[in-house]
Design a protein around this nucleic acid. Sequence first.
DNA 1: CGGGTGTTATAGTTCATCTATAACAACTGC
DNA 2: GCAGTTGTTATAGATGAACTATAACACCCG
Lengths: 117, 117
Amino acid sequence: MLLRIDPDSSAPLYDQIAGSVRRETAAGRLVPGDRLPSAREVAAALDVNLHTVLKAYQLLRDEGLVEMRRGRGAIVSARADALAELRAEAAALAGRARALGVGPDALAALLKAADDS
Amino acid sequence: MLLRIDPDSSAPLYDQIAGSVRRETAAGRLVPGDRLPSAREVAAALDVNLHTVLKAYQLLRDEGLVEMRRGRGAIVSARADALAELRAEAAALAGRARALGVGPDALAALLKAADDS
DNA sequence: CGGGTGTTATAGTTCATCTATAACAACTGC
DNA sequence: GCAGTTGTTATAGATGAACTATAACACCCG
């Protein structure tokens, strides 16, 4: 199986699955045009609910990393490369935040607040 | 009252209160060393529970924006300026994400995932 | 048509949020 | 020391969102 989860992690399952896909694209093992394994396949392989996998996939669709259609599955978007850069910038920001003693949760709250103001 | 909330907003009250404080510091109306109004004052003025205000204050403490001590209240930290810069960088990142069609929620998820990987 | 895909509906459980009350511990000023 | 302030902690309840699970649905391809 291409994707993996850690049953002992406290992070939501769909976040773990989505993160797994992100890592695969970042590592170049998934490139634009590739098809992700079907949600039912992943659900059976990881022994989780179909809905949980689909939620992960929809998360990735909201990010623009994949495109989904019935009967065809989830395909890695052409924008995957631009998103990889965005992800790198996010990681850099997270690093600077940590240097200031600001944890990930606090930074996430701070980032959401950046929209309102 | 220095701080304000919007009863019609769907955002959590403590987020609104915390955001209100952030704006005051960003605008220079609150500078390092200043004391925030006491939680009980704010709770009475905004007609909100004391705990809700304290949760907002603790959120700001986790960010490092204020320092809190019993009997003394919440004081704007000396690191407020450095945090303002971090906040500006976060806003810039949010703007770039929006240009890619990535919403704030998706970006926040992406940012949290940056820690795990 | 037949087997695949994501999508939607529904329901039960869990978790976050807000409220309320009360008691506690540290600091300030008299 | 004492009284009044402050944040801190504990407990409990009500409401709503989020998460999980099951099942049926709608679309695509060969």
